[in-house]
Amino acid sequence: MKFGVVVFPGSNCEMDCYHVIDKVLREEVDYVWHQETDVSRYDCLVLPGGFSYGDYLRCGAIARFSPVMEAVADYARGGGLVIGICNGFQILLEAGLLPGAMLRNTCLHFICRFVDLRVENASTPWTNAAEAGQVLRIPIAHNEGNYTVDAGTLRELQEQGRIILRYCAPDGTVSEESNPNGAMDNIAGICNEGFNVFGLMPHPERASEAVLGSTDGMVIWESVMAHYRGRG
C-alpha cells in the first residue's frame, strides 16, 4: 500500500506520519509537496497536523487553495482514501470535503494531552479493526477543535453513522465533562458520505508506538490497510 503525506508550508506532523507508515506499518510512503498536482499514484493520502500557512485568516483557509488541494479534492470525489489529522481535518473542512467548521476551544487555550475517544462506527475504512464502543486513548494538540455544524447537517451525520469518534470518559461515557474543547455533540472525528474521507482532531501517529504511551492509534492505520487489502 502506498501512502502520500501532503506537506504544506507550516505542516509540522508530516515526519511523524511518515515515520509511522515507514517504520511501524512498513508500507511505502512519499511526501507530497503542496505544489504537486498529481496524486493518482497513492492508495491513501494523509493531510498531517501543523499550522499550514501560519493558520492565518482561519485554520486551513489558505492551505485549501494550494495547488495540491484541487488534486486531493478530485481524488476524494473519485473515492480515494483521504485522512486529515488536526490541521489536516481543518483543511478538509475549509475545502468543503467534510461539512462544518472549527471554532476556538471554549477554554481559549491550546490543549495538548491524551484524551479518550469512543468509536461510534466500527464499519468504516478507518475503524474496521476496532469494535463499536471501544475506547481509544490518543492525544490531541490544538487551539481550534471546537467543531460546529448546522443542526440539519448534524442530524445527517448522526443518522448516517458519520460521527466516527467522540470525546468520552475512560469508561466510554460521553458527557460535557469529557469534552475538552466544546465540540458539538463531543465530535472528534467525522466522515464524508462515502466514508472515504476521514477528519479527526486526535493524532493517531502520536499513539502508534508503545514508547509514546499508547498504541491505540494503530487501530486507524490497521483499519485502512485492512480495507485496502480487502478490496484487493
Binding site: 471554532l103 476556538r104 476551544n105 471554549t106 477554554c107 481559549l108 466544546g182
Partner: peptide
C-alpha cells in the same frame, strides 16, 4: 447563534 468563546471571555 455561533458560539464566540473569545467574545464570551471578554
Amino acid at each position: 447563534g455561533v458560539l464566540d468563546p473569545a467574545g464570551q471571555a471578554t
